[in-house]
Write a protein that binds this DNA or RNA. Structure first.
Length: 559
RNA sequence: GCCUUCAUAGUUCAAUGGAUAGAACGAUUCCGUCCUAAGGAAGAGAUCCUGGUUCGAUUCCGGGUGAGGGCACCA
């Protein structure tokens, strides 16, 4: 629709020999200003040497009747041209949504593309930190937005299974004699190891020795401890993924990409990488970035080289990839600029393709960045547990058959909503009280409305009301004027890597529906508009369900 | 020091260069014979400072101020 208006204006301009005018067609903030509005007259004013309102009038005369879906055109404000759509447009949209509930909001912009998404990437041996949770939630939502655009998405997990953190955990396990099959004991062991590493010089040396031994792979006892710890950690991670509704297609470990990364660096010595002070570096300065070490003086690959190895493994597995994303915390922004720059030098075939780092904001309380390296950890687990506790209280009055499942759905929705409500990349101040409140702007608010609509539909069925879009009230409701925008919002969110657009839209839609619900009786068998209202409610429900899916949130049938 | 991200109601967030800057929470006041009150309604409340570009700036560009992140062998 937007395109049609845009084209009509462009055609009109072309017929007047006005090329290259940079105008927009958008939804006005206030629905009194129509369904679409254009600033074209304002933009042309200077060039035509006339006052914008005058031009707007002239344009209106030219556009009147040109676009079949436009009922009327008004001039307002400084010279905005406002388009009001015909009544049928809205009711036909409702019919369309009801006919194609499973694909409403889906499109084929990226059909045939294979897109690699790496996210979450936990450190095994370290409790799942809330930063991992953020990455998981954002990565999952972006993956789904790309899927809605018709692409095939490969979800990839890249856990860290070797290195100093692992050494701290293994050392800690030895000291605490904790049960390696117990995930909480592994977390405890890491805390002990980490603290000792920072405060105890002897322990620090021991841990470093453990680290070297693990790399060398020579010590049987340490290897076994590491392997078992990884097993426990992965099992727990899988459980969390199930709760979070994520499932990975491919998992590759840090330990398996080291050698490949090193080889890649060696193969591109001198023309991409250079030796410096015994290490091998990439001179980012030459590209306006900073220099980073890829192989250290001991010849061991750093994270940088490992990421090159990671790229090789992933693209071997999925050779037909067309776009490549890595979602991590924003503190790695500068790092990834250098890495991607080096990557493009090493692998020229990437130059025409999208290779992108998606930085997420770091999650803070009020006291600065939370670090899982320090003692006061707010883990992913603890936050889920706390919110679930709160959800359980609310759910005691629920109509749901399975309260435990509902509690989980609601808790995850509350958390995901908190994390997805702002632009990704900007820091998130995690307000626990807010996440726990489950009211107002929140995941459960959207879920509740979904459940409520289903119950209203059931009531209508019981009364024998057959939903239909045929007999519509003369003026469309505000909800209707929001409903059709879903498709545009979903695509914009994907294009801008901004799931929060979907969230903001859904919240607005839900608010509009709830207003409608409070003022209009929907399932009323004496109301001749009842079939239309029920159809509208159903279309809202479908939109909510698909929109929530894009956010990685499940829509319960009853609450 | 250099690079980078950011600054909007008391708080947490919105606003592809547009119209009266939207929500929610909190505080105040209403709505319970009626489809789920995890709901609805009413009023109060904000663009860090300073120049510029523009018909129009929260948005773009200077310059301040304040905060976060990064800058060689950690991940």
């Amino acid at each position: 629709m937007q395109e049609e208006i845009q084209k009509a204006i462009a055609r009109m301009l072309a017929s007047m020999d006005m090329d290259g005018v940079d105008f927009v067609v958008e939804h006005p903030t206030d629905s009194a200003h129509g369904d679409y509005a254009s600033n074209v007259a304002l933009v042309c004013a200077k060039r035509m040497g006339k006052n914008p309102r005058e031009i707007a009038e002239q344009f209106r005369a030219l556009l009147e009747g040109v676009i079949p879906q436009v009922a009327r055109i008004e001039i307002a404000g400084a010279g905005f041209i406002n388009f009001f759509l015909v009544r049928d447009f809205f009711s036909e949209k409702i019919a369309h949504i009801r006919s194609y509930p499973d694909t409403w909001g889906y499109h084929d912009t990226l059909k045939g593309e294979e897109i690699l998404f790496e996210y979450t990437s936990p450190n095994l041996f370290k409790p799942l930190h809330i930063g991992n949770l953020v990455g998981n939630i954002i990565g999952e939502s972006l993956s789904r937005l790309f899927e809605m655009a018709g692409a095939t998405v490969r979800r990839i997990n890249y856990p860290s299974d070797i290195g100093l953190t692992v050494a701290k955990g293994v050392w800690g396990l030895q000291k605490t004699s904790g049960d390696v099959r117990d995930i909480s004991k592994i977390g405890e062991a890491y805390r002990v190891g980490n603290e000792a590493y920072e405060n105890d010089a002897t322990a620090k040396q021991e841990i470093e020795a453990v680290n070297r031994a693990l790399y060398a792979g020579t010590d049987e006892v340490l290897q076994t401890l590491r392997a078992r710890g990884i097993e426990t950690s992965r099992a727990r991670f899988a459980e969390l993924c199930a709760i979070l509704d994520t499932s990975f297609d491919f998992e590759l470990f840090e330990s398996e990409v080291s050698d490949i990364g090193k080889r890649v660096v060696m193969e591109h010595m001198d023309h991409v990488f250079v030796a410096s002070d015994g290490a091998v570096i990439f001179e980012g300065e030459r590209y306006g970035l900073h220099t980073r070490v890829f192989l250290n003086a001991q010849g061991l690959p750093t994270y940088e080289a490992k990421d090159l190895g990671n790229f090789v493994v992933k693209t071997d597995k999925y050779p037909n990839w067309t776009q490549y994303f890595v979602v991590t915390g924003g503190e790695q922004r500068e790092y990834f600029k250098v890495l991607i720059c080096a990557l493009r030098q090493v692998f020229p075939e990437t130059r025409g393709k999208v290779v992108e780092h998606v930085p997420t904001g770091f999650l803070t309380l009020t006291t600065g960045k939370m670090s899982s390296r320090k003692g006061n950890v707010l883990t992913g687990e603890s936050i889920i547990a706390e919110v679930m506790e709160e959800a359980r209280v609310k759910a005691s009055e629920s109509r749901s058959d399975d309260v435990e499942i509902l509690v989980e759905m609601v808790a995850i929705a509350a958390i995901k909503y908190q994390i997805l409500r702002q632009a990704i990349g900007s820091d998130i101040v995690f307000d626990k009280a807010r996440a726990l409140s489950l009211e107002g702007d929140s995941g459960p608010y959207l879920q509740y409305t979904h459940a409520r609509i289903l119950s209203t539909e059931a009531k209508a069925r019981a009364l024998g009301i057959i939903p239909s879009h045929i007999n519509a009230p003369e003026t469309p409701y505000d909800v209707e004027r929001l409903l059709y925008q879903f498709e545009e919002v979903v695509e914009r969110a994907r294009r801008e890597r901004a799931p929060h657009h979907v969230l903001t839209y859904l919240t607005e839609l839900t608010g509009a529906f709830n207003t409608f619900y409070a003022h209009e009786r929907i399932a009323d068998k004496d109301d001749s508009y009842a079939p239309y209202k029920v159809a509208l409610a159903e279309a809202v429900r479908i939109t909510l369900k698909n929109g929530l899916w894009a956010l990685g949130i499940r829509a319960p049938d009853a609450m």
